[in-house]
Deep mutational scan, measured.
Amino acid sequence: MKVTIEENEETGKFTIKVKTEDGEEKTIEIPKENLEEILAKLPPNVEII
């Protein structure tokens, strides 16, 4: 699983794009305050880009 994290400076939010092993892609946008909480919940086999 690969996770790409991009900061949107205009909105102050982060866009998180997840690509699973089977090629499925999902995108979510979260507030900056929630980034550490989300990262802590990721499984250890995740590659963060």
Rank of each mutant, 00 (worst) to 15 (best):
Met1Asn: 05
Met1Gly: 07
Lys2Pro: 02
Lys2Met: 13
Ile5Met: 04
Ile5Ser: 02
Ile5Leu: 05
Glu6Leu: 09
Glu6Cys: 13
Glu6Gly: 02
Glu7Trp: 15
Glu7Ile: 14
Glu7Tyr: 15
Glu7Asn: 06
Asn8Phe: 04
Asn8Trp: 03
Asn8Met: 04
Asn8His: 09
Glu9Arg: 13
Glu9Phe: 13
Glu10Asp: 13
Glu10Ile: 13
Glu10Trp: 11
Glu10Tyr: 09
Glu10Ser: 12
Thr11Ser: 08
Thr11Ala: 04
Thr11Ile: 04
Gly12Leu: 02
Gly12Val: 01
Gly12Gln: 04
Gly12Ser: 04
Gly12Ile: 01
Gly12Tyr: 02
Lys13Trp: 15
Lys13Arg: 14
Lys13Leu: 12
Lys13Tyr: 12
Phe14Arg: 00
Phe14Ile: 12
Thr15Ala: 05
Thr15Arg: 03
Thr15Tyr: 09
Thr15Gly: 01
Thr15Ser: 06
Thr15Met: 07
Ile16Glu: 00
Ile16Ser: 00
Ile16Gln: 00
Ile16Val: 10
Lys17Gly: 04
Val18Trp: 15
Val18Arg: 00
Val18Ile: 15
Lys19Asp: 06
Thr20Gly: 11
Thr20Arg: 04
Thr20Glu: 08
Glu21Pro: 10
Asp22Pro: 02
Gly23Tyr: 03
Gly23Asp: 02
Gly23Gln: 01
Glu24Gly: 10
Glu24Pro: 04
Glu25Ala: 02
Glu25Met: 08
Lys26Val: 13
Lys26Leu: 15
Lys26Asp: 06
Thr27Asp: 03
Ile28Asn: 02
Ile28Gly: 02
Ile28Val: 11
Ile28Met: 12
Ile28Pro: 00
Glu29Pro: 01
Ile30Val: 15
Ile30Glu: 02
Ile30Tyr: 05
Ile30Pro: 00
Pro31Trp: 14
Pro31Arg: 10
Lys32His: 08
Lys32Arg: 14
Glu33Trp: 11
Glu33Val: 09
Glu33Met: 06
Asn34Thr: 08
Asn34Pro: 02
Asn34Gln: 15
Asn34Cys: 15
Asn34Ala: 13
Leu35Glu: 00
Leu35Ala: 02
Leu35Lys: 02
Leu35Phe: 05
Glu36Lys: 12
Glu36Phe: 12
Glu37Pro: 03
Ile38Pro: 02
Ile38Asp: 01
Ile38Asn: 02
Ile38Thr: 11
Leu39Glu: 00
Leu39Pro: 00
Leu39Lys: 03
Lys41Glu: 07
Lys41Leu: 14
Lys41Ser: 13
Leu42Phe: 11
Leu42Gln: 00
Pro43Asn: 06
Pro43Gly: 15
Pro43Met: 05
Pro43Lys: 03
Pro44Trp: 13
Pro44Tyr: 12
Asn45Val: 04
Asn45Ile: 06
Val46Thr: 08
Val46Ala: 10
Val46Arg: 06
Glu47Gln: 13
Glu47His: 09
Glu47Phe: 06
Glu47Asp: 08
Glu47Lys: 05
Glu47Trp: 03
Ile48Arg: 01
Ile48Trp: 14
Ile49Arg: 00
Ile49Ser: 05
